[in-house]
Design a protein around this nucleic acid. Structure first.
Lengths: 354, 354
DNA sequence: TTGTACGCGTTATCAC
DNA sequence: GTGATAACGCGTACAA
């Protein structure tokens, strides 16, 4: 079929958008074959300089833009990677998404964001949808799927997962030391003289929730302070649960002089509960959060919290994915947690056993 | 070529992933042509019931999932729509993204989120990227592009834009009555007895910013209260600008008894500035925000604000896009603004002219 | 109603 | 090095 796809054919179909410039048109304009243009575009093979120049010129002149859809069909790569979050509007994940978008975008990849809605089942469905879209890789931000499910997934497509430590082929885990962070926060309170420190736990089915509780307990143990289960309130990382937990705490009659919340959102809820009781932070009760959300700086009072480098985490996750895609084995690590001291903590009141 | 694409060919390529089930396989299994399977999948034509049953069975048995990439190439549709935000991690846009994701997903479409980074130039680049990905439509959440630029874009691909009122073919604008919302907030303060109401303006280049200022002025005028330019502080919708504005306000020596911030984030910053001065909300100064972010309920004190139905806005934007894609002309409208009265406002203090 | 044949735009393989 | 050519998986105009 010598017809080099030029000009008008039989005029049958019009699936092609009007002003679309195809690779074949570039080839014709440059007087080379389509294969060569493709090779130049992808650096697949060495091409003589004069042809390359002619092709570059034609590309510029015609304003050719490769079609990722066709590229995906032919090459089996879509230059897109799926990103699974729990909720796309979570203030916690936001920064990570930005980091991912920035890093992936710079490499020519596009992120496909989906929300797992805090359910392993929905998460699995999302991943199915992403796979059907033929994403080249999948980044899971602290998902609910089991390690083995992820390892299985990684056999089919490169996977990067944050918030846990695990090893598997074609999988990179990017963990943040939540335990050390929680220790930092608890030690801060301990150092201020607090002994009865309530802990507002996050979802304990969530790895972050588990590790942070562990850090709290470790710090207590290291300081020789007895662990008091009645001071640990279950929660789910939402403001509402923080508020409810503190109210339960009061109802239980357990005395406490400080509260460590497993994340900032719960700390905000706790702050409101305290406010409702007419208690001031930090004069009456000290409060520490975790994550260092953007809004923590502007809470009243500004919240002392553990900084979680979410943007960097997003960048690193994307870099790890890029490495995996290139066939390499990434060995990236997140910076250690830092405590950001603001204004929500002070020494416990001398009087009373609040 | 009677070769019905069955089993092993010459084993040349392996772009096809291992366990991939193609439409052709389904056709073979059901004893019909690929065309019929396609027709059944898309409801393109009437197919006899027995064939349909056979195909359905084969699809279920083989676990066939259509390949959107191939579908995009052949049909010219990718079942994906681009969504342009200013920042994907903005607490304001978050809810809208969720609404879009939910509604689009239910219809089989996938959203492609990109961040315009508050710059018209970057926004234009993002749209280019989306177009090169062959999205079927583009939703712009209160972008910075000019109306005419959007109208031009709409000639090539269906467009839904929020935050402005405009008319153009293949374009749906979904405006929220920011002006009425701002009036509501200002009237509330006025009704409480406030006369010197400071206004923390958002970005005035942003349509939302313009309209909200207008609402503030209209309410003032309607109440016969003189507009005082010195009480209007420029801002940019961030917490930091809210804080800075209030500090400037104090520096200027202008008396005021209430503050209306053009969005909740600025209200939070204002709250902190007040706190730093030892002023209490609402006893010393009343504070009203705009948007009703999720965190407004948990701020201290809970913020009185104008509810902006962002989630519904996302849903409606997606619905409008779906309609546009179906060749219809959507006529959807957002609910009118409502004032959410919480605890950040009270009557001005009788004494003093603060 | 159903099958045939072709095309969507690109990449990969093979032969030169 | 370079050019044909065959996929990639599906949609659809046309013929039957």
């Amino acid at each position: 079929m010598g017809d080099s796809g030029s000009s008008a054919r039989k005029g049958r179909r019009t699936a092609r958008a009007a002003g679309t410039v195809t690779l074949q048109m570039v080839a014709d304009a440059a007087g080379v074959s389509a294969a060569s243009v493709s090779r130049i575009l992808n650096g697949t093979a060495t091409v003589s300089d004069d042809k390359r120049a002619a092709v570059d010129e034609a590309i510029a002149r015609l304003g050719f833009v490769p079609n990722p859809v066709a590229r995906g069909l032919a090459g089996g790569r879509t230059l897109s990677v799926g990103v699974v979050t729990q909720a796309i509007d979570s203030p916690f994940y936001g920064g990570a998404l930005r980091g991912i978008e920035d890093t992936l975008g710079a490499a020519g990849y596009s992120p496909l964001f989906v929300s797992g809605r805090w359910s392993a089942a929905h998460e699995a469905r999302c991943i199915e949808a992403l796979r059907s879209r033929r994403v080249d890789g999948i980044i899971v931000l602290t998902g609910r799927l089991s390690d083995s499910a992820l390892a299985t997934l990684a056999r089919e497509v490169p996977v990067v997962v944050t918030g846990r430590t695990m090893k598997a082929p074609h999988l990179a885990a990017l963990d943040f030391d939540n335990c050390a962070g929680a220790r930092l926060a608890t030690e801060h309170l301990l150092g201020l003289g607090h002994r009865r420190i309530a802990y507002l736990s996050g979802d304990l089915k969530h790895p972050d929730g588990k590790d942070r509780l562990r850090g709290y307990r470790e710090a207590l143990a290291a300081a020789g302070v007895a662990y008091e289960p009645a001071l640990v309130m279950p929660g789910d990382f939402t403001e509402g649960s923080g508020l409810a937990s503190v109210e339960q705490l009061f109802a239980s009659g357990q005395p406490f002089s400080a509260i460590f919340a497993a994340n900032d959102q719960m700390a905000f809820g706790a702050g409101l509960a305290l406010h409702r009781r007419g208690l001031r932070v930090p004069q009456d009760v000290s409060l520490v959060g975790f994550d260092d959300l953007a809004s923590a700086v502007y809470s009243i009072p500004p919240l002392t919290t553990v900084h979680h480098p979410v943007y960097e985490q997003g960048q690193l996750a994307a870099q790890a994915m890029l490495l995996l895609l290139a066939g390499e084995t990434p060995t990236l690590a997140l910076p250690p947690p830092r405590l950001i001291v603001r204004e929500s903590c002070s020494a416990p009141r001398a009087s009373g056993r609040r």
